[in-house]
Computed example of a mutant assay.
Amino acid sequence: MTLLTPDAKGVFVISVTPFTDSGAIDFDSLDRVVDFYFEKGADGLTILGMMGEAQKLTQAESRAVAQRVIKRAGGRPIVVGVSAPGLAAIGELGKAVMDMGAAGCMVTTPGSLKTDPQIHAYFAQVAATLGQDVPIVLQDFPLSTGVHISDEVLGRIIDDVAQVVMLKHEDWPGLAKITKLRAAEAAGRRRISILCGNGGIFLPEEIARGANGAMTGFGFPEMLSDVVRLASAGDMDRAQDIFDAYLPLVRYEQQPGAGLAVRKYVLAKRGAIASAALRSPGAGLAPAAIAEVERLLTRQDNRLKELN
């Protein structure tokens, strides 16, 4: 079992959860999309996140998905989202997936947290619930949770909760937060890994600020891998050229309520999953949106050919 460490880097793709048109979990497609992500350059995967429709699964289904993905990954690191309104549910699912061989657990803040002391105390409670040997990915996603973690509170969590080994950075705007974290580490604070989300829309800048990679999803995960690799090596111009070729589709995926449907449409078109279906409540793309995506895909393909 490979556990997450503060040195983790690269691309951990946020996996979709494939469903049949009737809404059942499509385990054959789950196998296929896991293989697809690794073939396209993923270093690890994150499952049961918000874009994995985790909120639509039962606890039993969540465990079944985790078990299938961890087995299929063949020892490559799998992070499992275990966020829940209560600590009991976090502890139950977290223990189950770690026993299966997960690399760590991702947890975000419930919307009920209103003050800095509450936020700080919450992650200490999560760490105690999961156990001292479980690596934690702290998902900082105020656009979704409504909870804003200040630089100061985040620093206190890093200082006080040793199990937090990675930040999933999704604050927006948040580039300055990366800079401050790395400056604090240079001054002696414990270093943690920083992987970035938000669909990768600021990925080149995030790597340049000191992030270690990406933890997000996209219909073309090879873009995430190429940009992280090139930017980390200092070839920012080439990284930006490749990123810019995909940027119109990245932007289109940012639409609230429609982005996952776009991503699943593209993955189905590429053969990674059998159906683009979302589990209810959730709808696929309308014909007008499909036409727009197809136009973006054609332009993207032409631009990539120009870049060779």
Rank of each mutant, 00 (worst) to 15 (best):
D241L: 13
S22I: 02
D235A: 12
M223A: 01
Y122R: 01
F27V: 01
V11P: 07
Q59A: 15
G94L: 08
V293K: 09
I158L: 11
Q55V: 08
S225P: 01
M166G: 03
G199P: 01
G104W: 10
V11W: 10
V228K: 12
L30T: 11
I201Y: 14
E206A: 11
A54P: 07
D241G: 03
M50P: 00
D99C: 00
T298F: 14
R209M: 14
V79Y: 12
S15L: 15
R270H: 14
H148Q: 13
D21S: 06
L57P: 03
A268Q: 12
G111L: 02
G188E: 07
R295S: 11
D26K: 04
A268Y: 03
G44L: 02
A66W: 05
S112T: 12
V262P: 00
G104Q: 08
T216C: 09
G271F: 06
K114V: 12
L181F: 07
I178R: 08
P256F: 11
K177L: 13
A89R: 14
R263A: 14
K71P: 00
V65M: 11
A84R: 07
A277T: 12
G155V: 07
V82P: 00
P110W: 03
L57V: 05
F202C: 13
V250N: 10
Q118L: 03
P287H: 09
V293G: 02
A268D: 03
K264G: 03
G213H: 15
R182P: 00
V164Y: 08
A102Y: 08
L247D: 02
V165L: 02
S193H: 03
L267Q: 10
K71L: 07
A42T: 05
L296S: 08
R182V: 03
V107W: 01
R263G: 11
V137M: 13
M50V: 13
Y252M: 06
A184C: 09
M51N: 15
L93K: 07
C105N: 07
F19E: 00
R189V: 02
I47C: 09
N212P: 01
A54N: 11
A60R: 12
T115I: 04
G282P: 04
P248W: 09
V293T: 02
M106L: 15
G75A: 04
V69G: 06
R156F: 05
L30Q: 10
I201T: 15
L113M: 14
R32N: 14
M98G: 00
P85Y: 15
R76H: 02
L138T: 03
G219A: 03
A176V: 04
V161S: 06
W172Q: 11
G259W: 13
D35F: 06
V137L: 12
V250H: 11
A211G: 13
G213A: 15
V107H: 01
I136G: 02
A272N: 05
F220N: 05
S150G: 02
V147Y: 10
